[in-house]
Each structure stands twice: as C-alpha cells, then as structure tokens.
Amino acid sequence: MSISQDLAYLRAADLDEALRHLEKDGACVHGGGSDLVTCLREGTVTCAQVISIGGLDDLRAITPTSIGALATIAELGRHEEIERRLPALAAAARAVGSPQLRNQGTLGGNLCQKPRCWYWRGDFHCLRQGGDTCYAAFGQNHGHAIFGAEACVYVHPSDTAVALTAYEARVRIAGPGRSSRTRTVPVDEFFVLPADDPTRETVVGRGEIVTAVEVPAPPDGHVGVYRKIRARGAWDFALTSAAIVLAFEGGDRGKPVRHARLVLGGVAPAPWRAAAAEQALVGRRLDESTIAAAAEAAVADASALDHNGFKIDLVQGVLREELQSLAG
C-alpha cells in the first residue's frame, strides 16, 4: 500500500534517452502518471525505475493527422480542430474521469492504462497477476466483459481508444533502444485479448514507447458521436460506451448509410467493433427498423456472465439512442 522508497526516477531529456533507460530491467514509462502512481501504490505494477517522458514536448503536438502521445485528455476535449474533424474523439475525451484527471492524463497513457477490474486491483492473486484463476469469471462481475471474455474477463477502460477505433487510427510506437526504430499499429490490433495473452493489455513491448496516434481523414460528410453510460456523473469508467461514425450517401441523413463504424467500450478487453451492426446499417436508410436490426446484431454474439446481463440491454439501448439522434 505504498510506493517503494527505492524507486528511482529519471526525467528524460529526449526520446533517445528515455528509450535507452527503458531497456533496463524494471523500468517503466511515466506520462501523466494518473494511473501509474495508483498502480505503484497498490502494488499492482512493480517498477524499479520510473522514466518520465513529461519533458518531451515534441510528443505534445496536435496536427490534423497526428496527435502526440503527451497531448492531455483535456486538450483533446477542447481542441477546435479535433472537435470539427473527430467529434467522437473530442466527446470521448470529455467523458474521461474528472477535470483533474483530464488535465493530468495523456492520450498515450489513456491507451496504455491498466485494467480497472477490482480483482486485479485488489489483493487477489488473479490470472493477470500471475495466479491461476480469473476471480471475476464467477465472482462479482457486474462491470465485466460480454465479448471476448476468455481466460480473463476484464474490460478495457479507455474512452479515447473506443473513439480512435471508430476513426481507424494507427498507434505509432518508438523503440526499443532508439527513436529511429518505429512502427505503427492499427488501433484495432493494438490491444491484446486475454485469450492470446492474459498478462498484457497492448502490443507495446519492453523498451517501447507510444509516441503518437495517427488518424486518417474520416469520409466526407461524416458524423460522429461518443456516448458513455456510467454509474455516476463523473470520475467513472464506462458500464458501456459507444463511438459511432457514419457517413450518408450525398451527406443526406435521409439517404442510405454508406460508411459505418460502431465501436463499443466497457464490454470487452479491448474496444469492440460491432461489425455485424455496421453491416446492418450500410446501404440502408437509418430508419427505425434499420436501427433495431443494427442494435440486435450488435449483441448477437454477446455472452453474459452472472451479473452483467444488463449490458446486453444497455448496448442495444445506447446504440438505439445514439443512432436515433443521428437519424435526426
């Protein structure tokens, strides 16, 4: 319940220095720290050296096609260009935590945050903590997954990741060792499902740092929304959320949908693309029956645990509400 006194702290002067130090055993990246510090205090993450990248101002830039990993959530939420171009992302940013957390938290950290499962955060030696069982699978799983829940049933807590998936963003990752070594990963391949590896949440490897998120231009005439349902009005993660990006033929809401991205949050160990619901929309006018069909398709593959069956209703409810609002 307290951060070790032996913890070393280094504020890197540039990305290369940060990457060099990150190669050491037990080193971890510190961006805004709003999640890391809590994890260190809880002992859920162990770390010998914290490498702060807070001084790397290059990683703060927001351009039309790229958002630096150190851009704060608060900046995303009030950035005019993002509001205009990626409205679902701006709305997702505004739905994060509380004003204090949005000021402190960064986009990179929001994507790389650790699970919010109370078993993982508590002193239960669960599968993801190196134990041999997922306590949530048969325990108090009100907040847990209805999709992709194999081995470990946690839900990914990020709001921004859900919106970025709807915008088909790519995550730029630097390292290991030096900044000239980089790769980009589509955001829907960025998260690791527990069935593949229950000990990690993302593909970010040892010695690597997320440096930016690249977002391609959405289709012409697109509209986008993000809606988050939570147990209280602020400082909470999603019971269920949805990011929806649509484009209509001729930019006319009365005409058939030509592009649809529906991504769900709070229901799976990664942002969960509702592909069947997208198919139910494309080529059809956004009327009541289309909306109902899409909402039903979204949960066709859902599988509830003992206490989270409500999420099946909730996903449909959120999609219906938001699609109705987009139908105008």
Binding site: W118, Y119, G122, D123, F124, Y135, F138, G139, Q140
Partner: peptide
Amino acid sequence: DRGQTGKLC
C-alpha cells in the same frame, strides 16, 4: 466477493 473469497471488492 460473495460465493468466493468473501473479501471486499
């Protein structure tokens, strides 16, 4: 954690 460990979640 009713039905399992009984600990506070």
